[in-house]
Amino acid sequence: MSSLLTVSQSPHIHTGDDTKKLMRGVIIALIPAFIASVYYFGWGALIVTATSVLSCIFFEYVIQKYLIRGPVTITDGSAIVTGLLLAFNLPSNLPVHIIIIGALVAIGIGKMSFGGLGNNPFNPALVGRVFLLISFPVQMTTWPVPSGFKTGYADAVTGATPLGVLKEGIRNGEQVSQLMNQIPDHMQMFYGHMGGSMGEVAALALLIGFVYMLVKKIITWHIPVAVTGSIALFTGILWLINPEKNADPLFHLLTGGVMLGAIFMATDYVTSPMVPKAMIIYGIGIGVITVIIRVYGAYPEGVSFAILIMNAFVPLMNAWIKPKRFGEEVKNG
């Protein structure tokens, strides 16, 4: 024998799955939604996505190489995922410099300041998004109307989102049934034909990504089902109480960032709980807070805030909610 035998602890085999492959899986799952947003928002979608992804990778590289002076891990794909998710949460006509600021905040403050991948308490993309929402409220709430490649990047025609129409209308004392005439019907919303952040509109495309991730065992069903289920239940109760003041549950599920949030943002490994039981509580928390913000809050949309708020509770849930241990409760038959 030419070389020495290797000795290591068991197990001696591995699934072969690694962080890189998981991240690649998430990126693949995001492709349908990306195609949909390019279809609806044309050049804007391409420019916003490219800017966001490239600047996320750039900032991660610069920070790791020159600030932390540690190993550079941009190849693990987590910066690409953050960049994509940040882009999906932005309007497709957002000026490039704002996107770059968002990427810097997402990577620099949201991720690297806590020690990089695996250590950040809050979803980096959402940190970037909310930072921009508060800093540039006008640009961040000017939504282009879906028009494909017919209009350019800067001169896109803008309009309100369905949620914005609803909030504004109810504030002015209008009836929900009247407001529904001003917005696309549910089927159109399901395909994504409405104003909104570039990646969140196409529920169908996002669901395809969800199924892919379930099949590939990248995520479990717990969080998305808990989020959408609790939103449907909560808004359903409100709708039954007063259908003229409150929109129906399906409307709430298909509008805004619910689908994107429930499937891609809330399921972020790092910032979601470890135990299925806690995942469900976390999902319900997101759903309830989202509805509270939408119905009673000042903002028309609240998924981002809801996820960030629940992110803050994750360490607590991990400490308190334990998986059911084998042999904990003995029931013998």
Partner: peptide, 29 residues
């Protein structure tokens, strides 16, 4: 095992994917 299957790959940071929690047959973390 041949040499190429004998080495452990490089260790990365925990991404808290909770796969270990769901794989543990004893319900540990």
């Amino acid at each position: 095992f041949p040499a190429e299957e004998s080495q452990r790959p490089q260790v990365g940071p925990c991404i808290r994917c909770s796969k270990c929690v769901s794989a543990c047959p004893m319900g540990l973390e």
